[in-house]
Design a protein around this nucleic acid. Structure first.
Lengths: 197, 197
DNA sequence: CGAGCGCTTGATTGAGTTCAAAAATCGTGG
DNA sequence: CCACGATTTTTGAACTCAATCAAGCGCTCG
């Protein structure tokens, strides 16, 4: 059943009953998407938040030279989207792609409003998500400002323990703001250190 | 009159009448603070958003070595605070200091609630502020990931046109994630270029 | 008026980049 | 299921941007 994970997730964070959940998601859009599928294009308005019930997404942007910069990864149970674009109804700066074959639940404003009417914890929870997101990206700014490549990598492993195995290294390098070559070397150095201990 | 700027600002963004504004701010906390005053300490819960009606604030953090990293500046008509700390009632990672003698209006949750009851545009406006903030810090991440010292400096000048003259250079360097020496050199290079044109 | 802070400048160092090429891994069609 | 081409990762060498260290200048404010 496609909504199993989404239901578990929602009921874990709100008090939505089975009945209400079923009613709410009767016409919800769920898609099984192949690797490399694009869910959001730069220049489009981002009308959805994407709940990842299976798989792995990335949110990234391009600079003037066409180089990719990964802003965020979203594995299972993460919700990703461009809230500013949605809120202001403006073109997004970002792309969202599938890194693995994934199963995605599309959450739009309407759904959140409907859900919030049923259970006001729902609105609260989405607010919490928003504030978590802010905390997270602020932390990221501090890290980009003050941490070395090695420190950033260790923080990354801490945040996304299994992603090192699921995402290609060049994407992770991009997230960390270093080249794939540098990441490769950082990993080599760390392996050396750990071997010695 | 101490609330003049705050009133102008609020009425520019909401439909609050004079009467309502006066009622709302009858007991509001406004402080005239000297340069170097600290408005928020790392480890404290941030209970206020600070509206700068005059002066200049900075929000910054320290790394393990005690080095400062400026996350944000707030000149006149900006509102600054640590929303995550306020929202989650958690210790803040940040300090907020006055860079100049300033006049600060203290905005707490209660005030926003009261104001939102009077005029629901108020809540909307604070939501807009929040989303603007998110957009801004996401943009900042992109920039830290992909721009050189020179590009970052030019972006900074664009965002805060007059701050180059008001804030010490070493703080701006900290905001840009470079050393004061590097900033000095970047500026020299840029001056050279402009002179040649 | 002097001590200290902030800015500049120079010399040196170093972390990370770039370029190049080899090695490993992945994925797709036969 | 294998093989071949493409992509990804690793490694090496040279290079670059910005950091660090150090010295000197100028301003301000106590």
């Amino acid at each position: 059943m496609p909504l199993e994970n989404f239901k578990r997730y929602i009921q874990h964070h709100t008090q939505l009953s089975d009945t209400h959940f079923n009613e709410l998601t009767r016409n919800i859009r769920v898609e099984v998407v192949k690797k490399h599928t694009r869910l959001l294009n730069q220049g489009e308005v981002c009308r959805f938040s994407f709940f990842v019930s299976k798989g792995l997404l990335r949110l990234y942007t391009l600079d003037q030279q066409g180089k990719e910069f990964v802003i965020q990864f979203a594995p299972e149970d993460w919700i990703v989207g461009d809230r500013s674009s949605a809120y202001f109804n403006q073109a997004s700066d970002y792309f969202i792609d599938c890194i693995e074959d994934s199963e995605i639940v599309f959450i739009d404003k309407q759904l959140i409003d409907k859900a919030s009417d049923i259970d006001k914890n729902f609105r609260t929870y989405f607010d919490t998500l928003l504030h978590n997101h802010i905390r997270h990206i602020q932390k990221r700014i501090s890290f980009l400002l003050c941490a070395t490549a090695e420190q950033r990598y260790m923080e990354f492993v801490n945040l996304y323990p299994d992603l090192m195995l699921r995402a290609p290294q060049w994407m992770i390098a991009s997230y960390l703001g270093i080249t794939p070559e540098s990441l490769s070397r950082v990993r080599k150095e760390l392996a050396k250190k750990h071997f010695k201990l």
